[in-house]
Write a protein that binds this DNA or RNA. Structure first.
Lengths: 142, 142
DNA sequence: CTCCTATATGTGCATAATGCACTTATCATC
DNA sequence: GATGATAAGTGCATTATGCACATATAGGAG
């Protein structure tokens, strides 16, 4: 099941704005992107279990994300992680199908993921703060 | 007008990761950026109260953000918002000091902010999911 | 055998968000 | 008249990511 073209829900995103000289990616509020979340997601998946790129893409697709996972981005980060020593890889050819590169996370990679978790916690706190304040703004004003 | 040109804490951000051929912005995990949060924050602040750019920068600085607010980014978005009809502006010259552009949010701008809030809620849910799963990964494995 | 599809991995270019270095201008004060 | 805070901007660089394509293997349909 190729995830390539499945229409990522989205649609015109309910409340669209007025006369718009849109700058957002593909005209969606929020830009319709992972906001620098691909890295930590990949590290998480690799912490859970060693895997090759294609499998990671499939596992990511099950995350309940509302836009498709770009294979390009995944393969790109895997190679970068290897350069940085966060993963190691070796080719697997025994099984049927084209050769695949099996990635395993290293202790450094786990440390890096831990650092990412701290960042994500902060980011979540900021989001909570904005969301709470945003709801206040709508209760009062409007 | 409040000012306190407080120097946003910052520091060199201690924790650095292993042997690294860093690609992250300024070498920080997470990239040390707002992850597309500048727009909703500005909209929120403008929902709360009309203001000029410089004041918005100061108000943003009080958000507990761990990296400084770029004036460039703020002014840029304000102008873009105006192009898109999310805010209106007019010059204020009566007060002392250089002329300032007073921005007010429009109904379209409020609708846009509402759409952003929905995006942020999803983003927060995803973060919660990743964080929970990440903690599991560390409980079990490691 | 040939074409189609799924599995796998990749390259190259484009765009959007943002950082960073500088510039301009007003006014108050030393 | 230099300095510093207030205000608003320009121009270029970097980073993350999207998107269009390119390649290769293997199994099945015809």
């Amino acid at each position: 099941m190729c995830m390539q073209g499945q229409g990522h829900g989205q649609g015109p995103a309910g409340g669209h704005h007025g006369g718009c000289g849109c700058h957002e990616t593909r005209g969606e509020v929020g830009g319709g992107r992972y906001e620098n979340l691909v890295q930590p997601i990949l590290l998480l998946l690799l912490c859970e279990k060693s895997a090759h790129g294609y499998e990671l893409i499939e596992r990511m697709s099950g995350f309940g994300l509302d836009f498709p996972v770009e294979p390009t981005t995944v393969y790109r980060y895997l190679r970068r992680f290897e350069e940085q020593g966060f993963v190691t890889s070796h080719w697997e050819t025994q099984d049927a199908g084209p050769a695949r590169r099996l990635y395993e996370i290293t202790p450094e990679g786990k440390g890096y993921f831990k650092a990412w978790m701290a960042v994500l916690r902060k980011r979540k706190d900021l989001l909570d703060f904005i969301l709470a304040r945003g709801e206040d703004a709508f209760d009062l004003g409007k």
